[in-house]
Design a protein around this nucleic acid. Structure first.
Lengths: 152, 152
DNA sequence: AGAATCCCGACTGTCATGGTCAGAATTATA
DNA sequence: TATAATTCTGACCATGACAGTCGGGATTCT
C-alpha cells in the first residue's frame, strides 16, 4: 500500500508547474534544479503528464511545461492516476474490471471492504488540489526563513 | 496503491482459520483445497502469520493453524501489516521514520496529505474484522445456494 | 513405523520501479 | 543562419519485489 516515488516525483513537479502558472512555461531543467530530481527521469514523467492532459508543452528555447488548467482544478488524484494508473487496491474493484474474471466473485465477502478502501483513498486524494499544496508550502516558507542549506 | 495478492491470499487464509476457530486447528492443505491457492506458497504465508503472532501452529497428524484470539479481535489491518509491513503511502509517514532522512522535510507541503491518507487507509482496514468478513460470507452463502462448480 | 503435518532455506521467472543514454525535432535569439 | 535551449522518443539497464516451486528436515498422532 504505497504510492510510488515516481508518482511522488510527478506530484512535486506538478507543484512547481503550479507555482509558475500564469507566467511562461517552466522547463524541467529548472524543476530538476529546485527539486533535486534527475532530469532525464523527469523528462519521462513530464511526457506522461502531457499525454494525460494535465500539462502542455512548449518546445524550443524558452520552452517548458505549463498546466492546462488552474492549480485549484487539478487534484492529487489526477496526478497519481495519470502516472500510476487508476488507484485500486485490488483488480476486481477497478474501473475496467470485467465481471467474471475472478472465479470467487459470488462468494467473495471482502470485495465490499476493497470498495470502501478505494473510495476512501479516492476521497482523500481528490480533495487536495495542487493549489492547496502550493499554498501550504508558501505558508511554510514564510514561517521559517531558513538559511541557505549546504544540501548534501 | 494496491494491496499485494500475497496479502490478499493471507487474508483469505485467515478467514478460513476464523471459520474454524473454536474447533481444532485447520491445516493449510485444507485451506489450499477450499480456497484454490498453491499449498507451498501458503506455507510461507502461514509462517509469516505465525511469526506475526496472529496464529499458532500445531504440528503432526491432526495439526494445522488456529487464531491466537477470536476473529472479532483481528482486523484486516493486522493481517495486511503482518504480511506487507506497515501500510504507509510514503516512507516519511511510517512509524520507523527517522527525522531528517528526507532533506525536504522542512519545506514539504505534501506530508500532511500523506498523513491524512495513511490515517484514512488505516481506519478502513482496522474497522473491519475477520469476524465480519466471515459473517458477510455466510450471508452470501445462505442467500445464494450454488450448484457444485466444476472450477477450472 | 508411517503418515500427516508444520518448518525452513534455497531457488527461479517475471515484472515494475527507478533510472540512464543517445539522438532527433523544434524553436528563440544572437 | 548558426547555435543553444529545449522537448520528444525509444532503447537500454540494474535492482528488488512478487509469486511461486522444491527438497528435505522436524514433530506428532495413530
Amino acid at each position: 500500500m504505497r504510492v510510488s516515488s515516481k508518482a511522488h516525483y510527478g506530484l512535486r513537479m506538478m507543484t512547481e508547474f503550479a507555482k509558475a502558472y500564469g507566467g511562461g512555461p517552466l522547463s524541467i531543467a529548472e524543476v530538476a534544479r529546485v527539486e533535486h530530481l534527475p532530469l532525464a527521469y523527469l523528462e519521462q514523467l513530464a511526457s506522461q503528464l502531457r499525454r494525460g492532459g494535465l500539462v502542455e508543452s512548449t518546445r524550443g528555447v524558452h520552452g517548458g511545461y505549463s498546466l492546462t488548467r488552474p492549480a485549484d482544478q487539478i487534484s492529487v488524484l489526477d496526478v497519481v492516476t495519470v502516472i500510476e494508473g487508476e488507484v485500486s487496491p485490488v483488480e476486481c474493484v477497478s474501473h475496467g474490471y470485467v465481471t467474471g474474471t475472478c472465479q470467487r466473485e459470488g462468494e467473495c465477502a471482502s470485495r465490499g471492504l476493497w470498495v470502501r478502501l478505494k473510495k476512501s483513498i479516492d476521497a482523500v486524494l481528490s480533495q487536495t488540489t495542487l493549489a492547496e499544496l502550493v499554498a501550504d508550502q508558501s505558508l511554510i516558507d514564510s514561517m521559517a526563513p531558513v538559511s541557505p542549506e549546504p544540501m548534501r
